[in-house]
Design a binder for these strands. Sequence first.
DNA 1: CATATAACATACATATGGTATGTGAAAAAC
DNA 2: GTTTTTCACATACCATATGTATGTTATATG
Lengths: 218, 218
Amino acid sequence: MLYVDRLTGVKWYVGGMQETGRERTRREEYTEATRQALLAAGQNAFASEGYQAAGIEAISRAARVTRGAFYHHFEDKKALFDAAVVALQIEAAAKIEARAKTQRKVWDRLTEGIEAYLDVCLEPAYARIVIQEAPAVLGNARYREIEEAHPMALLTATLAALKRQGELDFEDIELLSRMVDAMICEMALLLPGAENPKRLRARGQKIIGNLLGTFRTG
Amino acid sequence: MLYVDRLTGVKWYVGGMQETGRERTRREEYTEATRQALLAAGQNAFASEGYQAAGIEAISRAARVTRGAFYHHFEDKKALFDAAVVALQIEAAAKIEARAKTQRKVWDRLTEGIEAYLDVCLEPAYARIVIQEAPAVLGNARYREIEEAHPMALLTATLAALKRQGELDFEDIELLSRMVDAMICEMALLLPGAENPKRLRARGQKIIGNLLGTFRTG
DNA sequence: CATATAACATACATATGGTATGTGAAAAAC
DNA sequence: GTTTTTCACATACCATATGTATGTTATATG
């Protein structure tokens, strides 16, 4: 979460934060807690009702504050949604990285990471908020900005590593990464409605595997 | 199916209209014309401002009627958007089919169709309304229903034909079709922001070609 | 010709997002 | 320690947009 030092105007994040030496006051903790409550309430509402149907009034009530408090913490409704997407993407990237790290060889890391990514995409909240609604609500530019910074960065980095090691050959790693991303998201939206999800998933992975295979060298 | 009266220039649709053998009255023609005007105004508004920002008042004014007329023709705002998506998808399917038909061999039809699909996806109105916003506005289920009935049906049919001819080998044609579809849409959202669109497009097509190549037999 | 109906227009009800202002407690300044 | 300021909220208000209920007129129909 973002903090702003009143004295220095310095901003910093908790999560990937640097210690600035200055101590946190109790009040700051409370503030952060209500902000978190609003964000959590927002995620719930957006996930279950969708962006448009989710009302700020209801979200605020769920966080046990008034709409006044909401507008103190967030610029507007879109800002809350943006924050929700960022939080989900950071979470997603962490989960994927953790799973990928269980493998030694880079190529195995890739396939494990893709597995993990698909698992994340299958979580209903993620599917609805990030995949289904975020592009429309935030606009493509902003959506891609967030996506590139978090979950896709891992994929791109892994593909780049493979290329450096000479195990993969393609000019535009970024593009290849996006294509794989698109296929994974497609799978995520397809699987919940399938009559045989296990089989469908296996087939989907085969397709993705085939594609990557065509660029594999050695 | 759209008909245009060569004498009057009036357009109308046959589809929901019962074939009564009865002649079309002038009044019915007028009615259909205003409906068309509303639909066109809606497409413009949705394409330039997005679903949420586009107001029914403005759309109605652009069609030179009041909001009362709008609500006479459409259930609600979503219904207009739905109609706009359907119309765009029907149009898209027609364009793709026309282009694909220029080729003799089925495999060439496939690649030509993919080319044509990408071209359609690059039209700003289509990209914004169908690709970017429709899933969020209509919900995934409805979105896929429309997509499957129109542009994707062609892709699936072509892939199925190739499979029948023994030129393609994969168990789930529908899935493969969806994957290709996902990649094309991804390309469409990627290209407008690219510094070298021509090169990017070529690379994207190479990726899609590679994927299909892995299932090619003979 | 009378009646019904359909294609609109008008007026209204209501919800929701956003803003402007008020308040009390806590931190900073002196 | 007292004063002053700040900040995290609450209250009240406003604007806008969706949707509905009702009214009106022209056309089709018996």
